[in-house]
Design a binder for these strands. Sequence first.
DNA 1: AAGGAATATTCTTATAAAGGAATATTTAAA
DNA 2: TTTAAATATTCCTTTATAAGAATATTCCTT
Lengths: 103, 103
Amino acid sequence: MSAIAEPNRLNIIELLHDGPCTVGEIAEQLRLRQPQVSKHLRVLCEARLVEVHPMANRRIYKLHVQGLKEIDSWIDSFRHLWEDRLDQLEDYLKELQRKEKGE
Amino acid sequence: MSAIAEPNRLNIIELLHDGPCTVGEIAEQLRLRQPQVSKHLRVLCEARLVEVHPMANRRIYKLHVQGLKEIDSWIDSFRHLWEDRLDQLEDYLKELQRKEKGE
DNA sequence: AAGGAATATTCTTATAAAGGAATATTTAAA
DNA sequence: TTTAAATATTCCTTTATAAGAATATTCCTT
């Protein structure tokens, strides 16, 4: 999850959404230096959000749907939990208000 | 957003869900030291996720619904954006597959 | 007014993540 | 086989964040 928290990595993912890219292309588009791009790609790879396809001299990176879907469902469940708690909290506050009026 | 990324702070929010607490109570429940609790509460306060009500010697902390709702809707919109992109990506991949078969 | 809780703040230290520069590695091309 | 391009890796420095310890502040109690 922290993999996509980093702004540059999120940018990389957004860029890859338009299609596969080489490291150099990513570096150029995002105005980053090649070593940093490689580092970020490594993190994204280990998080299974991206996959590599070596093509001769170059390495083509593209999005890895499976991993992205897992992130998505994680966010979804996190949000549901969160929402339930908010609802409960609102009920609780309303209850307090009701009691105050009653006195 | 980074306010709730920190585990201890998330714990504090979860604890406060059961009702308002003083700093000492939070420290005791979560087995934390008082200064750290105060620091975390400060961050949560500045993020408007929590509010203080000084009661004599003590300070009662409770959840701040408005701020929590903002976080919730942020997560929601983030996820929607994310999901749309995943859908587009799937379409894209299916298109690729179709082309491959066609050849 | 003095002492003692409860809480906040300050200062220092520890740690993790990110960028920069240089270097290593792999592979194509000559 | 040597050279150059593309990429990865290593080492160092910087920065942000959290914890620890000590101290300051606030307010009640006596």
